[in-house]
Write a protein that binds this DNA or RNA. Structure first.
Lengths: 128, 128
DNA sequence: ATCCTTATTGATAATAATTATCAATAATAT
DNA sequence: ATATTATTGATAATTATTATCAATAAGGAT
């Protein structure tokens, strides 16, 4: 007996799966806590960390500091809007095409591509 | 008169330029503070942030949480070793090749590529 | 060169994010 | 059903970053 299946961990994972906006821990916790007031935030931290270790959840690091999380672990890239700070998915980049550009003596287990710029909506003047 | 040239800012930049190991703020501060005991850490935080804004310094975000900084702003990618946690430069990836894979209606101002894996040295069993 | 204005600094307090602690609870092997 | 111990919940502790504010100094004006 080394790792146990708990209601809390299942809730954390399920809620994250339903969120497609790459939430921060805080945003994830708020949603979870709303429907499960007894589920504490330390538990959210612990379980998200475990899910990341297990490879079931992706941690997205941006230059804006706070980490975002994504239950979609199939390779894809992200676009961060410097204005509205939202993260969008980019599916047109293939990891194998990036790997072609890397010396194959390197043992690469993960590739993360982050684009930064102004999203179409912010570009077209729709103000915050 | 809007922004001033200060000794402190110059020191922060020069020391970072001499460090090729992508230091964290703490590592940068330690080196700076060693030779300039009067230069406080809030000043390092402030000036690094300014240099990043001005585009003279690059902020590198990794899934390990803390930010690293790089005075080399010419496009290049990074390889993070999951074992020794060092960051290596990768020069074989071209940003224009990545941009070819992105819908060109998107206004992209920066591209960040991070590879994760085990570096050659850790791979070959040289223990920590 | 001296004076003025105010951006910047240094020291530290405040805030925010994350991790550690620990008794109580609950998952699972026996 | 019982025993073992991983996990939880609540909170304290820690760490990282930002804000505050009086003192300093950059650099334009005189």
């Amino acid at each position: 007996m080394n790792t146990r299946k708990t209601k809390q961990k299942e809730i954390v994972y399920q809620v994250l799966c339903q969120m497609s906006n790459h939430p921060t821990i805080k945003e994830l916790y708020d949603v979870i806590h709303n429907e499960n007031p007894e589920l504490g935030q330390a538990t959210v931290y612990r379980n998200v960390a475990k899910l990341v270790e297990e490879g079931k959840v992706l941690k997205i690091s941006t230059p804006e500091g706070i980490e975002h999380y994504d239950a979609n672990c199939k390779f894809h890239s992200h676009f961060l809007c410097s204005k509205c700070h939202r993260i969008f998915d980019i599916y047109t980049i293939e990891s194998k095409d990036i790997m072609k550009m890397v010396d194959n003596s390197l043992h690469v287990s993960r590739v993360q591509v982050l684009l930064e710029g102004i999203c179409n909506q912010c570009q077209s003047g729709v103000e915050k």
